[in-house]
Amino acid sequence: MILRSVVSAVLIGAALLLFGGCASLPPLTYPPPAAPPCLAVPYIPQDDFQCGPAAVAMVMAYGGESVPLPTLAPEIYSPALRGSLQPALIAAGRRHGWLAWEISDFAAILQEVAAGRPVIILQNRGLSWKPVWHYAVVVGFDAAKGLTCLTSGREEQRAVATRTVLRTWERGGRWGLLLLPPGALPVVVDPDRLLAALIGLERSDVVAARPGYAAAVARWPDHAGLSTAYGNLLRKAGEPAAAEAAYRAVLAKEPRHVPALNNLADLLLELGRLDEAYAAAVAAVAVDSPYRSTAAATLREIERAQAHPPDHP
């Protein structure tokens, strides 16, 4: 009897020592509840150590794209690590045309889930000194009962106490990943980070990035970076008129925006509209910016074209 109380006292003492830093959690604000308690994300059982590919496969399958595990595993898994690195999940999502959106705020994760989007999280289900890493998918929550619905490559949907999920998620480095099909934007989103995410997608899949840029520009028409990037993409897609409109939309609000000025000048040069190109390039060079040498190169090209018109060599 005495022995038992001594053992439990020792264990409680050890636990307090180990978890002193994370004993209290910040209050969590739940979004309005999701329509169904848990999203019907299909269960795809994982191979050993391959919870990363399984999590991505499940999210994509829920979004209507069935990518088999034998395809995803070589894209995501690192054999020597017997695990998957977070950037590999991001890269694989992009290679299949999905926007990768990292989330470091659990309330934002629940907002995406409430909007019908499952979110992958990295958990350390063990302890900081005895980690048990796992990628799981948040598929629902019950604010009243304090439960979060998880699924992963090794478990079909199950309800876990939200405070447990929060703790394992914090211990895992507060990392969540939302994968969105072309054209969809996150619920909790800011334009600067969205631009970076779209650039990442564009690296792997220009076609999939286009509707994303279109949606982003429609939502933030005043964001110069987004519109300039959209112009660049349209030009590469062989649509100079639409690209010109995108650059000019930027310049209507920010007449001294050097990337838009320079790229408009470069586009107009290609189109043979040298006078307009020259005016834009001169304006670009006049601004002190990190892009000055590029703008100067553009101006030189235009002057060369003016001196030697291609029609009269």
């Binding site: 600067d192 564009e202 970076g225 050097v258 470069d266 190169a297 074209a305």
Partner: peptide, 14 residues
């Protein structure tokens, strides 16, 4: 460069 002159690539915007 795309067309002789220099384009400011999207990635440098960020």
């Amino acid at each position: 460069p795309l067309a002789g002159a220099a384009l400011i690539e999207t990635e440098t915007l960020v």
